[in-house]
Amino acid sequence: MNTMQPNIVTPEALRVSELRASFRKRDAQTVLASKYHTAPIKIAKTFPLGGPLGVIVMDVSPGLLAGDRYELQWQIEEDAHVCLTNQSFTKVHPAPDERSGSSMKQVFELGAGAVAEWMPEPTMLYRDAAFVNETEVWLAPGAVWMGADVYCPGRTLRGERFAYREFRNKLNVYYGNELIYAQHQRILPASQQLAAPGCMADMTHAGVFYAFSDRIGTPEAEAVREALGGFPIREGQPLIWGVTLTHKHGLAVMAAGNAAWALQEALAAAWSALRMRLLLQPLTFRK
């Protein structure tokens, strides 16, 4: 698996930071088997969750600056279960010119029966930011991968709304060696009508929740729809959402609203419902 270089960052400008970790099941508990990192990212803490292992990723820098590239690789061995998150918002700082930017790529490799849950804090795209976010998931039979992301249009209290230059979001999922899902989103606020009906309309924040496993089918999608259908709408916080099965072994939730916390709550409801269906475990991993 080769690391792809985003077009908006010139190779000579890259500052690559790496984080690699592997996990295995020992008796009834998942443990950290090995790790390697280069500044400014590292594993800040791991803690047992009654079988699964909780993992918190720390970024000791102010955020992703122009020319930064983060590369994270997670190997979850057979029957191991990890719940991954980070300490705070992923902050993407301005890029000074049209050929600069920042990027992050994550690769998840799951053995048979392994489970990986990636639930980070939201991503904040500052004015003039240019960012590529790439995720690859490799699934063995019986494995489960779940991930959620919330994207903020900028520092709205400072008047930033879709003032960033470019955002690309890519997700490729493989079952064995078969590509079963591919998504590539590109947002260019200066040239796209994001406020148009059918796009963001009057919403500002976007959220996604994906789950992939050969154990996912119509009953799992219906359980997620039921959970979101019963989710209480906060006063002054409109929320729109949709749930669909993917072509093979997966489901996707797309949501939009006007606050990151409201989307986080809604996606947590979807996550919890699916967790009970697939893992028979309630949602306990919340910061």
Score class of each variant (00 low, 15 high):
T135G: 08
T135A: 12
V137E: 08
L139Y: 11
L139N: 05
P141A: 10
A143K: 12
V144G: 12
W145Y: 05
A148V: 04
Y151L: 15
Y151G: 02
C152M: 15
P153W: 02
P153A: 14
R155G: 13
R155H: 10
T156P: 03
T156G: 04
T156I: 14
L157V: 11
E166V: 02
E166R: 15
F167H: 06
R168Q: 13
R168W: 09
K170N: 15
K170R: 15
K170D: 11
L171F: 07
N172G: 14
V173K: 05
Y174N: 04
Y175L: 13
Y175C: 14
G176Y: 04
N177Y: 04
E178S: 09
E178L: 13
I180E: 08
I180F: 01
Y181P: 05
A182M: 13
Q183W: 06
Q185I: 15
R186D: 06
I187H: 01
L188H: 06
P189G: 01
P189H: 00
A190Y: 05
Q192F: 00
Q192I: 00
L194Y: 01
L194D: 04
A195L: 03
A195Q: 09
A196F: 03
P197Q: 00
P197T: 00
G198V: 10
M200E: 01
A201H: 11
A201E: 04
D202I: 10
M203I: 00
T204S: 13
H205A: 00
V208W: 06
V208G: 05
Y210D: 11
S213N: 09
S213H: 07
S213G: 02
G217D: 08
T218N: 05
T218I: 14
P219D: 12
A221C: 07
A223N: 03
V224C: 00
R225K: 14
R225H: 03
L228E: 05
G229F: 03
G230I: 01
G230R: 03
G230A: 09
F231N: 05
I233N: 04
R234G: 11
E235F: 13
G236V: 08
Q237R: 15
P238M: 08
L239R: 10
W241S: 15
T244N: 10
L245A: 06
H247S: 08
K248F: 05
H249A: 12
G250W: 04
A252R: 10
A252T: 01
A252M: 09
A252E: 09
